[in-house]
Design a protein around this nucleic acid. Sequence first.
DNA 1: CATCCACCAAGAGAATTTTCATGAGATTGT
DNA 2: ACAATCTCATGAAAATTCTCTTGGTGGATG
Lengths: 225, 225
Amino acid sequence: MKILLVDDETELSDPLSRILLQEGYQVDVANNGAAGMNLALQNQYDLLILDWMLPHHSGIEICRSVRSHFLATPVLFLTAKDTVDDRVDGLDAGADDYLVKPFELRELLARVRALLRRSTLEMPNSDRLKVADLELDPDNQVVYRQGKAIDLSEKEIQLLTYFMEHPERLLTHEEIYRYLWQADEQPSSNVLAALVRLLRRKIEIKHETQLIHTVYGKGYRFGIN
Amino acid sequence: MKILLVDDETELSDPLSRILLQEGYQVDVANNGAAGMNLALQNQYDLLILDWMLPHHSGIEICRSVRSHFLATPVLFLTAKDTVDDRVDGLDAGADDYLVKPFELRELLARVRALLRRSTLEMPNSDRLKVADLELDPDNQVVYRQGKAIDLSEKEIQLLTYFMEHPERLLTHEEIYRYLWQADEQPSSNVLAALVRLLRRKIEIKHETQLIHTVYGKGYRFGIN
DNA sequence: CATCCACCAAGAGAATTTTCATGAGATTGT
DNA sequence: ACAATCTCATGAAAATTCTCTTGGTGGATG
């Protein structure tokens, strides 16, 4: 379970991150909005804990931005702002929960558990993704096909991960671009096609069953059939 | 969006259910635990709003029971119990959110929106159309016939979708043309015949049962027989 | 410095959609 | 029943759109 904590008050984020670590979570910390935004968009967190008031980008901006990139990561706001209007604004910006400082640590941890429980409930996937005779070990950046290990580059792993997390589904170019490159995109270049080619070269050449299917004019579909 | 509200205080549940209705939700109300439990297990709700203290079964029991039946329905606790321990217990029993009475209506509605937003986000559009041994997945631009996936092009999908949405019915050329091509660009030749051929080639050749029947001089009919 | 990787761009190549030519089958009137 | 006429199926090719391949550049890494 990977958590991103974005808060500029180190008096709070330091001990909090330590406690979350003790609870067994992986924790990344950012202490300004810009750093938080980048981390949130570039990594796949299971939960974002955001402060509202932040230098450079507010928590709400991060939340909106994450949501607009189709990431369903749960978001917990952690803030001193405590009018009902603030809460409504935060929740309607896409937050899943809202906790007012100062808060009791136990309640925070319970809410964190509640939010994370949901994502594991709905994704009972083990961290090793398997499709057909392909097995991806994202932590160690390796895929096995027919038992043999295949080394992949960073971008290749990212793409394959995205594919394997959504098998048998049409993934549009736009969705893939958004997942792999954080900034917005215009198909001004061919990166994706090129990347797909590299991945195919490693994954499916010499193994007759095709796994990456191109859907003309739309995107790609990954899976058997 | 279907909501179950379980609360024994009708002074609260009556106006609340009315407000939720006004907001456009379908609402069922139970005013004791047993009734709530039955409704929760027998129907598919998108959200449960539970009071903690209830005659017959507590909200926590309902929550545990729902969870043990592998229903991932979000649960919002609504209660007067307001120690941190209570909150932690509620959340750890499987609740997704916890709101203390008395609460502000706007905040409740915002939290309801937040919880429902999540379930629509993660719901893949599964309006799959089935006719005979054909199953169409328009979102992913695939049809399965006898379990095997067949890739279709954009126009083929559009035509097949139209067919499968109106099985066993005569669809005139004009109707089909209107559906597939905008009014401004009316193709002048026999595109439709050509397209039908392409579709037949993929769908029914090699599978003896004919699905696309031509109605001479009128149009086509899709279905068995 | 050598290597690996991400990115770019352009021509080759492939898939899709439309059009055309043609023949087979259906329909109608006589 | 027969011919004239209309409609559809079919294969092939043109037009269009999109993808793949390739070679190259620059930056980061070791």
